[in-house]
Amino acid sequence: MGTLRKLALPALLALGIGTAPAQAALVTNGDFETGDFSGWTQGGDFATDNVFTAPGHVYDGTYSAALGTLTGSTLSQVLNVVAGQTYTLTFVLANAPGNTNASGNNAFSVTLGDETFSLPDNFVAFDYGTFTIEALATSDTLNLAFSFLNNPSDWLLDNVTVETAANAVPEPTTWAMLLVGFGVVGTSMRRRRQVLSFS
Score class of each variant (00 low, 15 high):
T164V: 12
G113N: 08
N50Y: 01
A168E: 13
E171P: 01
P97N: 08
A168M: 11
E115F: 08
T173D: 05
T116Y: 08
D60P: 00
T69Q: 08
L142H: 03
P170T: 07
V78W: 00
L136A: 10
L142M: 06
T74C: 03
A94V: 07
N80P: 00
S103A: 15
L178P: 01
L157Q: 05
Y87G: 05
T138I: 12
T69A: 08
T62C: 01
S73M: 04
T88M: 06
F146S: 04
G98E: 09
N95E: 09
S103P: 07
A166D: 15
G61L: 06
V124Y: 14
S73G: 05
A102N: 11
H57P: 00
G104D: 15
L119F: 15
Y87H: 02
I133S: 08
S139R: 11
Y63H: 15
N101M: 12
H57V: 01
T130Q: 12
T132Q: 14
S139W: 08
F52W: 11
S153I: 01
A176N: 13
E115K: 09
L119Y: 15
L144E: 03
D140M: 05
A107M: 13
G98C: 06
T62G: 05
G84D: 03
P170W: 02
S147I: 00
L79A: 04
D158P: 05
V169S: 14
A66T: 02
A137I: 03
F148Y: 13
E163W: 11
V169Q: 14
T174Y: 02
A145T: 07
N105M: 10
T138V: 14
D127N: 15
T71M: 07
S139C: 07
L136C: 03
G113F: 07
L136K: 02
D121C: 11
V110W: 01
T90M: 09
A94D: 06
V169P: 03
N105Y: 15
A165S: 15
N151Y: 11
D114C: 04
A165R: 03
S153R: 04
G72C: 08
N151P: 00
G98Q: 07
P120M: 13
L93N: 07
A137H: 00
E171T: 14
V110L: 07
S73W: 00
V160H: 00
L93Y: 05
G68M: 06
N143Y: 03
T71G: 03
W155I: 09
Y128N: 06
H57R: 13
V160F: 00
T130G: 12
N167P: 02
W155C: 08
N50H: 07
S139A: 15
L149K: 12
A145L: 09
T161P: 02
N80W: 02
L149T: 04
V162Y: 01
D114W: 02
N105S: 13
P97G: 06
A168Q: 10
Y128E: 04
F91W: 09
T130R: 09
